[in-house]
Protein backbone atom coordinates (compact mmCIF):
# COMPACT_ATOMS: atom_id res chain seq x y z
CA UNK A 1 0.00 0.00 0.00
CA UNK A 2 1.15 3.50 -0.62
CA UNK A 3 0.99 6.40 1.84
CA UNK A 4 -0.33 9.81 0.88
CA UNK A 5 2.88 11.30 2.21
CA UNK A 6 5.09 9.31 -0.11
CA UNK A 7 7.04 11.00 -2.84
CA UNK A 8 6.64 9.11 -6.06
CA UNK A 9 8.14 9.08 -9.50
CA UNK A 10 7.31 7.36 -12.76
CA UNK A 11 10.00 4.79 -13.52
CA UNK A 12 12.46 6.06 -16.14
CA UNK A 13 11.86 2.77 -17.99
CA UNK A 14 8.19 3.54 -18.46
CA UNK A 15 6.60 5.38 -21.35
CA UNK A 16 3.02 6.61 -21.35
CA UNK A 17 1.11 6.58 -24.61
CA UNK A 18 -2.06 8.66 -24.65
CA UNK A 19 -5.16 6.88 -25.91
CA UNK A 20 -8.76 8.00 -26.22
CA UNK A 21 -9.70 6.10 -23.07
CA UNK A 22 -6.66 7.10 -21.02
CA UNK A 23 -3.19 5.75 -21.70
CA UNK A 24 -1.02 2.73 -22.12
CA UNK A 25 1.94 2.43 -19.83
CA UNK A 26 4.77 0.35 -21.18
CA UNK A 27 7.71 -0.79 -19.13
CA UNK A 28 10.72 -1.27 -21.38
CA UNK A 29 12.52 -3.30 -18.74
CA UNK A 30 9.99 -5.97 -17.82
CA UNK A 31 7.91 -5.41 -20.95
CA UNK A 32 4.67 -5.16 -19.14
CA UNK A 33 1.88 -3.26 -20.71
CA UNK A 34 -0.71 -1.74 -18.45
CA UNK A 35 -3.83 0.15 -19.32
CA UNK A 36 -4.73 3.28 -17.48
CA UNK A 37 -8.42 3.49 -17.99
CA UNK A 38 -9.18 6.98 -16.77
CA UNK A 39 -7.78 10.26 -18.07
CA UNK A 40 -7.68 11.50 -14.44
CA UNK A 41 -5.40 8.63 -13.51
CA UNK A 42 -3.15 9.44 -16.45
CA UNK A 43 -3.00 13.00 -15.23
CA UNK A 44 -2.05 11.91 -11.74
CA UNK A 45 0.57 9.44 -12.96
CA UNK A 46 2.18 11.94 -15.26
CA UNK A 47 2.22 14.54 -12.49
CA UNK A 48 4.31 12.37 -10.16
CA UNK A 49 7.43 14.46 -10.26
CA UNK A 50 9.64 13.00 -7.58
CA UNK A 51 9.34 16.06 -5.34
CA UNK A 52 5.74 16.38 -4.14
CA UNK A 53 4.00 13.95 -1.85
CA UNK A 54 1.16 11.98 -3.42
CA UNK A 55 -1.40 14.00 -1.50
CA UNK A 56 -0.27 17.24 -3.12
CA UNK A 57 -0.33 15.64 -6.53
CA UNK A 58 -3.90 14.44 -6.04
CA UNK A 59 -4.91 17.90 -4.90
CA UNK A 60 -3.17 19.56 -7.79
CA UNK A 61 -4.99 17.27 -10.19
CA UNK A 62 -8.25 18.20 -8.48
CA UNK A 63 -9.15 14.67 -7.57
CA UNK A 64 -11.99 14.86 -5.04
CA UNK A 65 -10.97 13.43 -1.66
CA UNK A 66 -13.54 10.61 -1.56
CA UNK A 67 -11.86 9.21 -4.67
CA UNK A 68 -8.34 9.19 -3.25
CA UNK A 69 -8.68 5.66 -2.06
CA UNK A 70 -9.36 4.39 -5.56
CA UNK A 71 -6.42 6.33 -6.92
CA UNK A 72 -3.97 5.17 -4.26
CA UNK A 73 -4.97 1.58 -4.97
CA UNK A 74 -4.30 2.07 -8.66
CA UNK A 75 -0.96 3.71 -7.87
CA UNK A 76 -0.07 0.86 -5.53
CA UNK A 77 -0.67 -1.70 -8.26
CA UNK A 78 1.47 0.32 -10.64
CA UNK A 79 4.20 0.30 -7.99
CA UNK A 80 3.92 -3.45 -7.75
CA UNK A 81 4.48 -3.64 -11.48
CA UNK A 82 7.58 -1.47 -11.04
CA UNK A 83 5.99 1.32 -13.08
CA UNK A 84 6.19 3.83 -10.25
CA UNK A 85 8.96 4.17 -7.68
CA UNK A 86 8.77 5.60 -4.21
CA UNK A 87 11.51 8.05 -3.29
CA UNK A 88 10.55 8.10 0.36
CA UNK A 89 13.15 6.56 2.68
CA UNK A 90 12.53 2.94 3.52
CA UNK A 91 9.87 2.72 0.87
CA UNK A 92 11.96 1.87 -2.12
CA UNK A 93 9.73 -0.29 -4.20
CA UNK A 94 10.79 -3.83 -4.65
CA UNK A 95 11.34 -5.00 -8.13
CA UNK A 96 9.20 -7.97 -8.83
CA UNK A 97 10.64 -10.87 -10.69
CA UNK A 98 9.01 -10.97 -14.05
CA UNK A 99 8.48 -13.76 -16.44
CA UNK A 100 7.74 -12.22 -19.75
Amino acid sequence: MVELTEILQLSPSVALRPEPFGALAYHFGNRRLTFLKRPELVQVVSSLNGTDPLKDVLQKCQIPEPKWDVFTKAIASLMKADMIHSLSPGKTSQKEPHND
Binding site: R32, T34, K37, R38, A74, S77, D100
Partner: peptide, 13 residues
Protein backbone atom coordinates in the same frame (compact mmCIF):
# COMPACT_ATOMS: atom_id res chain seq x y z
CA UNK B 1 -3.70 -9.65 -30.10
CA UNK B 2 -2.50 -9.09 -26.91
CA UNK B 3 0.23 -11.16 -25.96
CA UNK B 4 1.27 -11.82 -22.48
CA UNK B 5 2.63 -8.41 -22.02
CA UNK B 6 -0.81 -7.10 -22.21
CA UNK B 7 -1.68 -9.41 -19.45
CA UNK B 8 -4.48 -7.22 -18.36
CA UNK B 9 -2.89 -5.85 -15.34
CA UNK B 10 -5.38 -3.24 -16.18
CA UNK B 11 -5.73 -0.61 -13.64
CA UNK B 12 -9.41 -0.18 -13.31
CA UNK B 13 -10.28 2.84 -11.37
Amino acid sequence: PLTESAALNSVTT
